[in-house]
């Protein structure tokens, strides 16, 4: 089963961020082994007054990847729309990750501006993937607007705390009519696998790979965790029991 977002389909369910890698070489290799097909980017001013720096995006084979620029830096819906339009003007993408941060300490999204930005960008014809808190009713309001994916955070961006509220994520997934991609807060492969076992359609992470001691190895670990979690979800796990239940027969014992 492929992941379908808007009119595009993807065989990988791991979406990878491109920030904070220790070097370009490590980043290129991490992206390659992750087998991610969707990469996120931020939109910023060029450093035109300084010596030109290598740019990761300009070194990518853009026929292989779908770019998902974000609106990070936007404090309200209008700023998010401005950033999204700048990104689209590159002619390289029509997807946008709506990200409107409402609190500089926790980096949690502003729900009202996020909703408003999503609506405005849908009207502008973007394929909209909205980063949101794990609020169940907000997720429902977003999908009713017509966003192409809802991306609830597992815990604050870059915190690595993993999935703080699996019950709410499960409720969001249960009611979903669009893909649910768990975005932000993933710390280790177990978090990614857990998100997928809960039934998420994908996982978006950045710091967990870029900040790992060995980012390339962690990129592979995350790829396998996402695949493993997805397979586990599709296979259907056993119900939990309070006490033990033997796996070996209780008859025909060898002794007496």
């Amino acid at each position: 089963m492929m992941l379908k977002i808007g009119d595009k389909t993807f065989s990988s369910r791991l979406l990878l961020g491109t920030g904070k890698y220790p070097s370009f070489e490590v980043q290129k290799e991490a992206v390659r082994v992750s087998e991610a097909e969707i990469l996120t980017f931020a939109v910023r001013r060029m450093n035109i007054f300084e010596e030109s720096q290598p740019n990761f995006l300009e070194q990518l084979d853009l026929t292989k990847y779908t770019l998902l620029p974000n609106t990070a830096g936007a404090r309200n819906a209008e700023e998010a729309v401005r950033i999204a339009k700048l990104a689209k003007a590159s002619g390289l993408c029509d997807m946008i990750k709506v990200e409107v941060i409402g609190c500089s300490k926790t980096l949690l999204p502003d729900p009202l501006e996020t909703l408003k930005a999503s609506e405005m960008l849908l009207q502008e014809g973007f394929t909209v993937l909205t980063y949101t808190s794990d609020d169940v009713l907000l997720a429902r309001r977003l999908q009713e607007l017509g966003v192409h994916a809802v991306m609830p955070g597992a815990s604050p961006i870059g915190s690595g705390k993993g999935i703080m509220n699996p019950l709410q994520l499960r409720f969001i997934i249960e009611q979903a009519t669009v893909p649910i991609i768990v975005d932000a807060g993933i710390g280790s492969p177990k978090d990614a696998a857990f998100a997928m076992e809960l039934g998420a359609d994908g996982v978006l992470l950045n710091t967990a790979v870029a900040g790992a001691k060995d980012p390339v190895k962690m990129a592979l670990a995350m790829k396998l965790a996402v695949e493993s979690g997805r397979l586990g979800f599709e296979a259907g796990r056993i119900p939990e029991k309070e006490y033990g239940e033997a796996s070996s027969p209780l008859t025909g014992m060898v002794s007496s």
Binding site: G17, T18, G19, K20, Y21, Q27, T40, F41, A42, V43, R44, R45, M46, I48, N55, F56, L57, L67, P69, N70, A72, L86, A87, S90, I157, G158, A184, L204, L205, N206, T207
Partner: peptide, 10 residues
């Protein structure tokens, strides 16, 4: 005038 590009981000 703003000259904008894409940089690494999550």
């Amino acid at each position: 005038i703003e000259m904008i590009h894409f940089v690494g981000g999550g």
